[in-house]
Structure formats: structure tokens, C-alpha cells
Design a protein around this nucleic acid. Structure first.
Length: 171
DNA sequence: CCCTAGCGGTGCT
DNA sequence: AGCACCGCTAGGG
């Protein structure tokens, strides 16, 4: 019998000019990123000794990549990304999102077509909303048809800000 | 602008 | 199994 064991997560904070993001790491890599929140802070193992050297290396890459994207630049090198929390469908969507480069956008329908399931365009919206690693897995680059903004789980202000910094226009 | 029908994945009962 | 969500879209007032 295969037991599902929740691998221990390491949680580290990322101070930026936009606020303090929070990153989660599994044993496979970066598995979550949270937007800054004014609510109570999660428990952070901020101390360097606490986290394995490997995680610290991943985190350094995350911090760098995040700051670059927040300033409208390409992310550069990413840490390993662990998307295994998602269903097969979600993972296919999230992987497709990773191929949208800075300054480019796709519609929900185009993402659906890209993963070979063109009629699942509505479900693509759901998968984007469930993206565990916003910003670095760039779900903000998915717009509604006819270049309209569409939605954003992290709040539309964030979507507008990220797109603006990438010089993307919408209608 | 509004409405409506059709659509697929997900999570709840 | 059923059912109600949805970050959707195309078509028609």
C-alpha cells in the first residue's frame, strides 16, 4: 500500500519593493509562491542553517528570478519547479504557461489549443487560477479573447501591474 | 452594454 | 452519480 506522505515543506520569505512574498519548497523544488499579504505571516524558516544547502541555492534563484520579473525583465535561471500538486490537466496548463515569454500573451482558448484540448478553454481559466507559482509561472500572461484582461486569482491589480511592467497592452 | 447557450475540469455531496 | 461552481467564448439583441 502506497502511503501518500506529504513531504516536508520549507517556507522562506522574499522581501521585494512590492512587499514580502513567501516561497515554499518541496524536496523536488519550488512548489509554491504567495503574493505579499497583510494577514498574519506564515512560519518562516528564515534561518540559513535550518534549510538544507540545496534549498538555499534554490531560494537564491527564486529571489533573483522574482525580482527580475517584478521589474519587467525575463526571469533568468529558475530553480527546479515542482508542479506535482496539480492534476494532469493542471500540470499541462501550467507547463504551457511557462512557455509564454515576457511581453507575450495568449488567450485562454489559445492555451487550451496548445495543450491539445481546444474545447477546454474554460477549464484553462480554472487551472490558471489554481497555479501555485504565480509570477514565475506566468498565468498573468493569459488574457481573455479580444485582448480583454480576464481574471486573476491574486487580484486584478497584480495582473495589471505585471503586464504593464512587461509593456503588454490590453483592451 | 446585456443576455444566452455551450463547453470541460474540479470539488463537493 | 449528480451538481454547482468557474480567471471562457461566440453569437445575438
Amino acid at each position: 500500500m502506497l502511503k501518500i506522505m506529504q513531504a516536508k515543506l520549507v517556507t522562506l520569505s522574499i522581501p521585494t519593493p512590492d512587499g514580502v512574498f513567501v516561497a515554499h519548497y518541496s524536496d523536488k523544488g519550488l512548489c509554491g509562491l504567495e503574493f505579499p499579504s497583510r494577514m498574519k505571516k506564515p512560519r518562516i524558516q528564515s534561518d540559513t542553517d535550518e534549510s538544507p544547502r540545496r534549498v538555499r541555492a534554490w531560494h537564491a534563484a527564486t529571489v533573483k528570478a522574482l525580482k527580475r520579473v517584478l521589474s519587467g525583465k525575463p526571469p533568468g535561471r529558475l530553480p527546479p519547479v515542482d508542479l506535482s500538486s496539480g492534476t494532469d490537466f493542471q500540470q499541462r496548463v501550467w507547463r504551457a504557461l511557462q512557455d509564454i515569454s515576457r511581453g507575450k500573451t495568449l488567450s485562454y482558448g489559445q492555451v487550451a489549443t496548445a495543450i491539445g484540448n481546444p474545447k477546454a478553454l474554460r477549464a484553462v481559466g480554472g487551472a490558471c487560477g489554481a497555479n501555485p507559482i504565480p509570477v514565475l509561472v506566468p498565468c498573468h500572461r493569459v488574457l481573455a479573447a479580444n485582448q480583454r484582461l480576464g481574471g486573476f486569482g491574486g487580484g486584478l491589480d497584480w495582473k495589471r501591474a505585471l503586464l504593464t511592467r512587461e509593456r503588454v497592452q490590453w483592451s
